[in-house]
Computed example of a mutant assay.
Amino acid sequence: MARTDNDTWDLASSVGSTATMVAAQRVLSTREGLIDDPYAEPLVRAVGLDFFVRALDGEVNLDDIDPRFNTRRAAEGMAVRTRHFDGLFADAARDGVRQAVILASGLDARAYRLPWPAGTTVFELDQPEVIAFKTQTLAQLGAEPTADRRALAVDLRDDWPKVLLDSGFDPTQPTAWIAEGLLIYLPPEAQDLLFDRIDELSAAGSRVACEHIPDVSMFADERSQEIAARLKAYGHDIEMGELIYHGERNDVVDYLSARGWDVTTQKMPDAYAANGFTFDESTTIGLFSDMSYLSAVKR
């Protein structure tokens, strides 16, 4: 279903289902010993989307969906992504940053699984149903946050800075921000607004990490459509081309640089190499060869 201005979702529908998809990939990466996210699997199973549960149970063969892809390659791709964002938080903590914000947190369990230094506050922002589900499910699992977790139920299209400030966020202190897997689901103007707000709320020494995808047309090309058709045969009905916003948007690197941030990027092939993996252009991951992982520090 195509996006609308005021659409909402839970973790089994629309954009929310992509958060469950990412968590399922984190399960594969954890099983391969590439990352450690013990909460991903119980969270995915609690959501209960049939395709992902069957995938975790070995009833979906990735080789049948794309012969050039397999479980190991899916696990490596998620390991590269997860390590990038984990690394942003680890570097910030090492440098004394004690305030973190996870935007569109979905099934992200970093507030529970990372070794946060004492005195760290982690703010999580997402749709009310998403926040409520994850908080309740983790509580039922007996999970305890490793930081002062403040879960904020707010739509990022609304005045989330006010909600953040009202919840004890201190804009005079440096902050570590991540916007993992978020930008493509925002209209171009909303992407600009997101970074305007981050910039306004960030003291010197703040960090931010996100993906930089210069061309989202990859989600609608012939190869992507072929894979989507194969996935539908297994009951997977996420249509990425309908969930993302197309059209030209400002370059994130230029946008942040112009606002006083020192930006570094690492293209996917280089990110794979840095993690000891081989980036195979002939596989599905080859669609993302121009994508970069971005991190920036505010001067």
Score class of each variant (00 low, 15 high):
residue 121 T to G: 08
residue 162 K to L: 09
residue 94 R to L: 11
residue 13 S to R: 06
residue 60 V to I: 15
residue 1 M to S: 13
residue 272 Y to R: 02
residue 5 D to A: 14
residue 111 A to Y: 00
residue 167 S to Y: 01
residue 6 N to A: 15
residue 178 I to R: 05
residue 100 A to G: 07
residue 36 D to H: 15
residue 197 R to P: 02
residue 120 T to N: 11
residue 45 R to Q: 09
residue 21 M to S: 10
residue 200 E to I: 02
residue 21 M to C: 12
residue 58 G to C: 04
residue 36 D to E: 14
residue 213 I to R: 04
residue 14 S to P: 00
residue 11 L to F: 05
residue 125 L to D: 00
residue 52 F to W: 10
residue 91 D to A: 15
residue 28 L to Q: 00
residue 186 L to N: 04
residue 273 A to C: 06
residue 95 D to K: 15
residue 120 T to R: 05
residue 108 D to L: 12
residue 273 A to V: 03
residue 111 A to S: 14
residue 241 G to N: 07
residue 71 T to E: 11
residue 240 M to V: 14
residue 168 G to V: 01
residue 46 A to V: 00
residue 6 N to K: 14
residue 54 R to D: 14
residue 104 A to K: 01
residue 219 F to V: 11
residue 40 A to D: 08
residue 57 D to H: 00
residue 99 Q to T: 10
residue 155 D to P: 00
residue 298 K to I: 10
residue 270 D to L: 14
residue 42 P to G: 02
residue 192 D to R: 02
residue 14 S to Y: 10
residue 129 E to F: 11
residue 124 E to D: 15
residue 127 Q to I: 09
residue 180 E to N: 05
residue 207 R to T: 08
residue 1 M to K: 06
residue 83 R to K: 15
residue 47 V to E: 00
residue 34 L to P: 03
residue 160 W to G: 03
residue 36 D to Q: 12
residue 100 A to M: 14
residue 299 R to H: 08
residue 296 A to M: 06
residue 192 D to P: 04
residue 235 G to S: 07
residue 219 F to P: 07
residue 199 D to M: 01
residue 236 H to C: 01
residue 117 P to I: 10
residue 200 E to W: 09
residue 46 A to N: 04
residue 133 F to S: 01
residue 283 T to Y: 00
residue 269 P to N: 00
residue 209 A to G: 15
residue 44 V to G: 05
residue 68 R to N: 13
residue 73 R to E: 03
residue 20 T to R: 08
residue 25 Q to C: 02
residue 104 A to W: 03
residue 7 D to R: 01
residue 52 F to T: 02
residue 55 A to M: 14
residue 234 Y to D: 04
residue 63 D to M: 03
residue 131 I to N: 00
residue 165 L to G: 09
residue 117 P to E: 07
residue 61 N to G: 00
residue 259 R to P: 07
residue 164 L to M: 08
